[in-house]
Lab assay of single mutants.
Amino acid sequence: SAEDNLGPLPENWEMAYTENGEVYFIDHNTKTTSWLDPRCLNKQQK
């Protein structure tokens, strides 16, 4: 699965689903949400 390739979410991040079944990500560090997987963003920065 995609999660196996990317590994676990960063600390204090949570994956959630909208009512429509779309995946989004919650950053409890900054109390924000994102459509972008933080694991993908980390890979792009390196």
Rank of each mutant, 00 (worst) to 15 (best):
Asp4Arg: 10
Leu36Ala: 09
Pro38Asp: 00
Asn29Ile: 12
Asn20Phe: 07
Glu22Ile: 05
Asn42Asp: 14
Pro10Arg: 02
Asn42His: 12
Ser34Asp: 00
Glu11Thr: 13
Leu9Cys: 03
Leu41Arg: 12
Asn42Ser: 14
Gln45Arg: 10
Trp35Ser: 04
Ser34Leu: 00
Glu22Val: 05
Glu11Asn: 11
Leu6Gly: 08
Asn29Tyr: 07
His28Gly: 05
Leu36Pro: 00
Thr32Arg: 05
Pro38Ser: 00
Leu9Tyr: 04
Met15Ser: 07
Ala16Met: 06
Gln45Met: 14
Lys43Arg: 13
Thr33Tyr: 01
Pro10Thr: 02
Asn20Arg: 13
Val23Asp: 05
Trp13Thr: 05
Val23Glu: 14
Asn20Glu: 14
Leu6Thr: 13
Glu22Pro: 01
Met15Glu: 09
Asn29Arg: 13
Thr32Trp: 04
Asp37Thr: 02
Asn42Thr: 12
Phe25Trp: 09
Met15Phe: 05
Cys40Arg: 14
Asp27Met: 00
Asn12Phe: 07
Asp27Val: 00
Gly7Asp: 11
Pro10Glu: 04
Thr18Ser: 12
Asn20Val: 12
Pro10Ser: 02
Ala2Met: 15
His28Val: 05
Cys40Leu: 14
Glu22Ser: 09
Ile26Pro: 00
Glu11Ser: 12
Met15Thr: 08
Glu11Pro: 13
Thr18His: 06
Pro38Arg: 00
Trp13Asn: 02
Glu22Cys: 07
Lys43Tyr: 11
Tyr24Ser: 02
Gln45Val: 12
Gln44Leu: 07
Tyr24Asn: 01
Ser34Gly: 04
Thr18Asn: 09
Leu41Tyr: 13
Lys43Met: 12
Gln44Val: 08
Gln44Lys: 15
Ser1Tyr: 07
Tyr24Asp: 01
Leu36Phe: 13
Lys31Met: 14
Pro10Leu: 03
Asp27Pro: 00
Asn5Cys: 13
Lys43Ser: 14
Glu11Arg: 14
Gln45Cys: 13
Tyr17Asn: 11
Pro8Cys: 06
Pro10Ile: 00
Thr32Gly: 06
Ser1Gly: 08
Gly21His: 11
Tyr17Ile: 11
Leu41Glu: 15
Leu41Phe: 15
Asn42Glu: 15
Asn12Ala: 10
Glu19Ser: 14
Pro10Gln: 03
Trp35Ile: 04
Glu22Gly: 05
Ser1Ile: 07
Asn20Pro: 07
Glu11Asp: 15
Gly7Trp: 06
Pro38Tyr: 00
Glu19Pro: 13
Gln45Glu: 14
Ser1Pro: 02
Trp13Lys: 02
Ala2Asn: 09
Leu6Met: 13
Lys43Gly: 13
Lys46Met: 08
Glu3Val: 08
Asn5Glu: 10
Lys43Ala: 11
Asn20Trp: 05
Thr33Trp: 00
Tyr17Val: 11
Leu36Lys: 12
Thr30Arg: 08
Glu19Asp: 14
